[in-house]
Simulated assay, not measured.
Amino acid sequence: MSDALTPALMAEIHAEAFDTPWDEAAFAGLLDSPGVCALGDEAGFILVRTIVDEAEILTVAVRPSARRQGKGRTLVEQAIVKSKAMGAERLFLEVAETNLPAQGLYGDCGFEIVGRRAKYYRKPDGSFEDALMMALNFPL
């Protein structure tokens, strides 16, 4: 994790990136968990958890002002490298069913849809949205 990438900064970036952001305490708690690491900088970050041979992207957040410049792709690629280095054989994530730009990014990075989580995300209006589960298997 970059020295500048604090839980407070992560919460600030997350609030700019999402309608239902995580707070500073949530990031502090996650960063204190085994196998969790954050990669990124003031423009955006990715949070990854590796347990034994599986890794999961917990969240990716890029400030709106830094989007469409390759930041998200760079973060996902860094997460792939980090996960492999931590011994993972597979990397998972969930993405909102309607988040087509993110799905395209993950697909371009080699992820495939492997399932669905019904009513996984709560929307600001109180309704729910399904998440698509995506995975990337690393070659042995």
Rank of each mutant, 00 (worst) to 15 (best):
Met86Cys: 10
Met1Asp: 11
Ser127Lys: 04
Ala43Arg: 15
Leu39Glu: 09
Gln103Arg: 15
Thr74Leu: 12
Gly104Ile: 13
Arg90Pro: 04
Phe92Tyr: 08
Arg122Glu: 12
Pro139Phe: 14
Glu94Trp: 00
Ala135His: 09
Leu100Trp: 07
Asp3Trp: 01
Ala4Lys: 09
Phe92Glu: 03
Ala43Tyr: 10
Ile13Phe: 02
Ala135Phe: 09
Thr20Cys: 14
Ile51Asp: 02
Phe27Tyr: 06
Asp130Gln: 10
Phe128Val: 10
Phe27Leu: 03
Cys37Thr: 15
Leu30Gln: 12
Phe111Gly: 04
Gly104Lys: 12
Ala43Trp: 07
Lys71Pro: 13
Gly104Asn: 15
Asn137Pro: 03
Phe111Glu: 07
Val52Phe: 08
Pro64Thr: 11
Lys71Met: 14
Ile13Leu: 01
Leu100Pro: 06
Ile80Gly: 01
Leu93Val: 05
Glu77Gln: 14
Leu91His: 08
Ala38Arg: 02
Lys119Trp: 11
Leu75Ala: 07
Gly115Cys: 00
Ala88Lys: 06
Arg116Asn: 09
Gly107Pro: 09
Ile57Glu: 13
Arg90Val: 15
Pro101His: 02
Leu5Asn: 03
Glu94Ser: 04
Thr98Lys: 05
Gly35Lys: 00
Ala131Pro: 10
Ser33Tyr: 11
Leu91Trp: 10
Ile80Leu: 07
Phe27Asp: 04
Glu12Asn: 00
Thr98Glu: 06
Ala135Glu: 03
Leu93Phe: 00
Ala28Leu: 06
Thr6Val: 05
Ala28Asn: 03
Gly107Arg: 08
Lys84His: 15
Ile46Trp: 02
Ile13Lys: 00
Asn99Ala: 03
Asp53Cys: 08
Glu54Gln: 02
Gly72Glu: 07
Asp32Tyr: 00
Gly70Gln: 13
Asp53Ser: 01
Ser83Asn: 05
Leu91Phe: 04
Leu39Lys: 06
Pro101Asn: 10
